[in-house]
């Protein structure tokens, strides 16, 4: 036992000796840091690889060749939209920490987020503006796909899932607008739901299921909140999964 410990101490001593001689050389410090970084990285990566076996799949994903025609600026709008949606999910969770979905307190709680909470104005501003930006980038993305005819065989269902994503984004906008419980949001929702109520025969049923009553009141705020915060996020995440899986399997269409 004692000998083994002695051996280890000797080993550490020799390591330290090497380090000190390296440090005495010109540029020795950078060299030392480099060596330690390389050895440490390899050690950590091996440790992870032995336990999770993720190296091969990650390398496959990261090393996928991208051909020249795919490296064009016009292909970037889908990615920008995804980034903005990610931003919305994060800032949305942040806002949910303070927002109160009650007719009496919703507007006040949003005022509090904007005026009192540290950086609340920033979080709300990002959520507000990227909501509008998503529409812009999404429509540019849609126009590009439409003009270049990329929706054609065999990518019909990439297009279909994309259009469904557009509908979900519109759903987010329509429900999020009411959540501020401001005059603008309230009356805009009244007008929009008035249109839904004009649908022949089933209009009133749509109203009752969507807004929990014939007129927009607390029940409507609750339902819009549930849709905005639970149902639509789940739907958009699932559909984004489908959209990207299809893009990965079928690739981007080659230019004509």
């Amino acid at each position: 036992m004692k000998e083994k410990i002695k051996e280890k101490i000797e080993l550490i001593k020799s390591f330290l000796q090497t380090f000190s001689t390296m440090l005495e050389m010109p540029g020795g410090l950078t060299q030392l840091i480099n060596t330690l970084w390389m050895v440490g990285k390899e050690f950590v990566l091996n440790w992870l690889e032995q336990r999770f076996r993720l190296r091969a799949p990650i390398e496959k994903i990261l090393d996928k060749p991208v051909s020249g025609f795919e490296r064009k600026w016009r292909h970037c709008f889908g990615g920008i939209t995804l980034t903005l949606i990610g931003l919305q999910l994060v800032t949305g969770v942040f806002l949910a920490f303070y927002y109160i979905p009650s007719a009496g307190q919703a507007f006040e709680s949003i005022q509090m987020i904007t005026d009192e909470v540290a950086f609340g104005w920033l979080i709300r501003g990002i959520h507000h503006w990227s909501a509008y930006l998503i529409v812009v980038t999404m429509l540019i993305h849609l126009l590009k796909v439409f003009i270049t005819g990329s929706y054609r065989h065999p990518r019909e269902f990439t297009w279909v899932s994309g259009v469904l994503l557009l509908m979900i984004v519109f759903g987010f906008l329509a429900t999020g607008y009411l959540l501020t419980w401001s005059q603008q949001g309230y009356w805009a929702s009244r007008v929009a739901m008035g249109l839904a109520g004009e649908v022949p025969v089933v209009g009133w049923i749509i109203l009752l299921f969507v807004q929990g009553g014939y007129v927009i009141k607390q029940a409507a705020l609750t339902r819009f909140f549930v849709a905005h915060v639970f149902l639509l996020p789940v739907a958009i995440i699932v559909l984004l999964g489908v959209h990207f899986a299809l893009i990965r399997r079928l690739g981007i269409q080659k230019p004509l």
Partner: peptide, 13 residues
């Protein structure tokens, strides 16, 4: 009246 107005009058608000 249009339905949204009718509903507002019949159910309040």
């Amino acid at each position: 009246y249009p339905s949204w107005f009718r509903f507002a009058m019949q159910y309040g608000g």
